[in-house]
Design a protein around this nucleic acid. Structure first.
Lengths: 201, 201
DNA sequence: TCATTTTTATACTATCCGGTATTTTATTTC
DNA sequence: GAAATAAAATACCGGATAGTATAAAAATGA
C-alpha cells in the first residue's frame, strides 16, 4: 500500500503491456463487434500469447469487462460531462446532438451500445457492468431533465423517467446509425427532430 | 408449369415438410436471434436430419433467406397494409404505434430488425434480401408521407426521405425495445412522443 | 422377385472457439 | 555457476459449428 511495487524482481521479465492489450482489444471490439472478435484474434493483433492474456485477465469475460471499464472512463465519460456541465437545456441537447452525430470517435458506433445490444452474448461480469453503466446513464439523463424541469425549461408532460429513457435511446439510435454508415447530416437532422419534442425551438 | 406435380412417384417418400421446417426455424430465429440458432438445433427442433435440410435449402444462407421471405409475407406485410390503408396521417401513425407497442406478435421483437441489426453475420443471399426489404420499406414510408404532405397534413420541413427514415427507425426502435422486456406502456409513450413531431395533437 | 430411384439416418470432416498443460526462456538470489 | 522463480511459447483439449460422404430404408416399375 505504501510504494506501488513495479512487479517482482524475480523471474523472466514480462513483455506484455496490459494497457496496450486493452487498447488493441477495445479498438477491435469497438470497430467491429465484441461478439465477432475472438481472444485468438486479439492475441495475434496484440502480439502476445494466449496464456499471457489469460494470466492477466482470467477469462474472455474478464478481458471484455476490463475493456468496458476502460471505455467507460475514456469515452463514455464525455457524455456525463455534457449532461453535468450545468448548461441550459437547449445547449446541452445541442451538445448531445453534436457529439452523437459528428464526433469522429463515434464514426464506427459506440462500444457500449454494441455490448448492450448483444448483452446475452457477454460473460456474466461484463453483462453486469453493462447493466450498471446503463442504470448510471439513465440516472444522469434523469437528473439533467429534472433540473431542466425545476428550472421551468422543460414543461410538464412526460415523467422524468420516461424522458430520460427517451433521450438516452435517441442518442443511442443516432450513434448506432453512424456505425451503419448513415449520412451524418441525416442523422443530425433526425436526432434534432427527435429531441425537438423536449425543447421546441 | 401445367400441373404442380406433388413429388415423383418413385423413391422413398419424404417425411420432411418444408413449411413446417420453415415455421420451426422462423420461430426459433424470431424468438432468440438468427445468429444464436444453429442448423443443428433447427434440425433437432424440427425432427429432421441435416442432409434433408441441406437438400431442401442448400445452405444455412438458403434456409435463413427462405425464412425471411416467409416472415416478410406473413408478418411484415401487416406494416405495409397499415401504411397503404389510405387512412389519414393521424390514424395511420396511431395504427403504427398500436402495432409496434402492443401487437402480441412483436412481444419478442421483429425478426427482420434482428436480421438487419446483425446483417454482417448473415449469408450473402439473406443479407441482400434484408437490404431489399429495407429499401422497399423505406419507399413505403416515403410514399405514405408524401401523400400526407400532398394532402396538407404534414407541414413542410424535413424532406420526405428524412421523415421516412425517421419514422421507420422509430418504429424499429420501439419494437426492438419490446424484445428487451421494456414496459409496453412506456414504449408506447416514447413512440407517441417521437411521432408527435410528425403529427402534433 | 429384383433392379431402380429417392429420401432418410448415421457418421464423419475440417475449422474455429475458449481455455489449459507443458516446456522453454530469461531473470534474480545465493 | 546453480537453484529458484516467473513469464512466454507451443501445442494441445474438449466442444460446437457448417457442411458432406456413405449406407440403410422405402417406395415404384418390370
Amino acid at each position: 500500500m505504501s510504494d506501488a511495487n513495479k512487479g517482482p524482481a524475480r523471474g523472466r521479465p514480462r513483455t506484455m503491456n496490459a494497457e496496450q492489450v486493452l487498447d488493441v482489444a477495445m479498438n477491435a471490439y469497438w470497430h467491429s463487434d465484441p461478439a465477432d472478435v475472438s481472444v485468438n484474434a486479439i492475441c495475434q493483433m496484440a502480439g502476445i500469447s494466449k496464456p499471457s492474456l489469460y494470466r492477466e485477465f482470467g477469462s474472455e469475460d474478464g478481458l471484455s469487462r476490463a475493456v468496458l471499464d476502460r471505455y467507460a472512463e475514456q469515452v463514455l465519460s464525455e457524455i456525463f460531462v455534457i449532461l453535468q456541465g450545468g448548461m441550459g437545456l437547449r445547449e446541452t441537447l445541442d451538445a448531445l446532438i453534436e457529439f452523437a452525430s459528428s464526433d469522429p470517435r463515434m464514426e464506427t458506433g459506440c462500444l457500449f451500445y454494441k455490448m448492450r445490444a448483444g448483452k446475452h452474448r457477454l460473460g456474466p461480469d461484463t453483462r453486469a457492468r453493462v447493466e450498471e453503466i446503463d442504470a448510471v446513464g439513465q440516472a444522469a439523463y434523469a437528473a439533467f431533465l429534472q433540473a431542466a424541469r425545476n428550472a421551468g425549461d422543460w414543461p410538464d408532460g412526460p415523467s422524468v423517467e420516461a424522458g430520460a429513457k427517451y433521450l438516452g435511446e435517441q442518442v443511442a439510435l443516432a450513434i448506432t446509425q453512424r456505425a451503419s454508415g448513415e449520412d451524418p447530416a441525416r442523422i443530425r437532422e433526425m436526432l434534432t427532430l427527435a429531441l425537438s419534442v423536449i425543447s421546441r425551438s
